[in-house]
Amino acid sequence: MQKIYYQAKHCDGCLACEVACIEKKSLTKSLFMAKMEQPVPKARISFEKFGNHYWASICQNCVEAMCVGACMTGAMQYSETGEVVHNLEQCVGCWMCVMVCPFGAVVPLEDAKKVSKCDLCKDEKTPPCVVACTRKALCYCTPEDYENEG
């Protein structure tokens, strides 16, 4: 299974990944049109600044995921390959996953009163946020590759 890994030491907070995510999650698939959509699409990755450093909140596809345990409807589930997947149809917006996620990676969609999170953009070869990251702070690889390459 491949995941998105974040290395704070390479990140300069340019937020290109966030923009790429918004574009991808928009209905029009266009960054300029995305801003005019109602509701405005939300990125599944977000940033917080700590002094001179940045820290990204993005789903880590935990092996023992708190969100899966907390979900009362079964909308948050493990896929066959081990990723944490979210089924929007089953979601009733209790936002318990938002409460328990230690990474703050589950994104509340206020207008729909549901949540969403990074789904690794399985329809793309590499997730757009990773492509957008020119400093290689985000990488899309297996845990083994991440361990080896640091």
């Binding site: 917080e48 700590f50 909140s57 230690p102 703050g104």
Partner: peptide, 13 residues
Amino acid sequence: MGFYVRPKSLGLN
């Protein structure tokens, strides 16, 4: 930065 971080909920400190 190695500790339990939840920037939005738990707060920076």
